Amino acid sequence: MGKDSKTKDAGAKGKGKGKQAAGGSDENASKGKGKSGKASDGLGTCTYVKARHILCEKQGKINEAYQKLQDGWLSNGDKVPPAEFAKLASEYSECPSGKKGGDLGWFPRGKMAGPFQDVAFATQIGATSAPFKSTHGYHVILCEGRKN
């Protein structure tokens, strides 16, 4: 039960941070309405996501990494540049992907476990999720792309 509520909270927070990336949604809105009739934000309609992440065993460490993102970009409403996110992932992430700047590449729906997948597919392109917990530890995700 606790995991579900945390996942929903993290997803909601991730969506809130995604507002900073919504500036270019006018172009997507004209494309999104036509064929499928689904929401133009593209959330929940794609089958693949390209993402980077930072994984830490301890909540305090992920909060420290997230604070650096906040101080550098998010508090100003800016997007975190992938290269800057990659630097923080190299410094903070305890996942083997940290050596590659947290790059997970493209992955399909169903490949990642529960909360990670939920947050990855709910975070808008260019946006950074709030810290959240999965079975592997604490994460922050940067969504870099979507495709079907």
Rank of each mutant, 00 (worst) to 15 (best):
S129L: 00
N63C: 08
A127R: 12
S40I: 03
E64D: 15
P131E: 11
A113T: 01
S90D: 02
G98W: 10
K79Q: 15
F116D: 11
G110C: 14
A83K: 15
G2C: 09
K111H: 04
S129Y: 00
P115Q: 10
E64P: 02
K3I: 05
G16T: 10
D41T: 12
L104K: 14
K79M: 14
L74T: 02
D78V: 00
S134I: 05
Q117Y: 04
T7V: 09
K35S: 03
K6Y: 04
V119D: 10
Q70I: 11
K19P: 01
A130H: 06
D78R: 02
Q67M: 11
I141A: 05
A83E: 15
C46P: 00
A21S: 14
G101C: 03
K38I: 14
Y138W: 15
F121A: 03
K68N: 15
E57F: 02
K100A: 14
A21L: 01
S5P: 01
G44E: 07
K15L: 13
G145I: 06
L43N: 04
F132K: 00
K79D: 05
S5G: 00
S75I: 06
E64H: 05
G110K: 13
G137L: 13
A122P: 02
H139W: 08
R146H: 07
G32I: 01
A86H: 02
G60K: 08
V49S: 11
F121Y: 09
R52H: 09
E57L: 05
S40L: 02
G18M: 14
K15G: 12
H136D: 10
G34T: 00
K111S: 15
F121H: 09
H136I: 05
A51H: 10
Y48A: 01
A39M: 05
R146K: 01
I54T: 05
V119R: 07
E84S: 11
C56S: 00
M112Q: 15
P115I: 05
C56H: 05
K68P: 06
N28Q: 13
G2N: 09
E27Q: 10
K61S: 10
K33D: 04
W106K: 06
T123W: 08
K50M: 11
Q59P: 03
L104I: 04
A12F: 12
T45Y: 04
A21Y: 03
D103H: 08
D103K: 07
K8C: 02
K79F: 01
V119H: 07
L69N: 12
P96T: 11
F116W: 07
N28C: 06
R146D: 09
Q117W: 01
Q67E: 14
K8Q: 13
A22F: 15
G126K: 02
L142I: 14
K19E: 15
K61D: 10
W106G: 08
A120I: 02
Q59D: 05
Y92S: 04
Y66G: 00
A120Q: 01
G44M: 11
K61Q: 13
K17F: 15
G23N: 12
C143Y: 03
S36K: 12
L43V: 15
C143G: 01
D118P: 04
E144C: 11
G18H: 10
Q67S: 12
A122S: 07
V49G: 10
T135M: 13
W73A: 11
I54D: 06
P115D: 09
L55Y: 00
Q124C: 01
E94R: 07
S97V: 13
F132L: 05
G18Q: 12
G145K: 12
Q117T: 03
G23W: 09
I62V: 15
E94F: 05
G16P: 02
G114K: 08
G37P: 01
A122T: 03
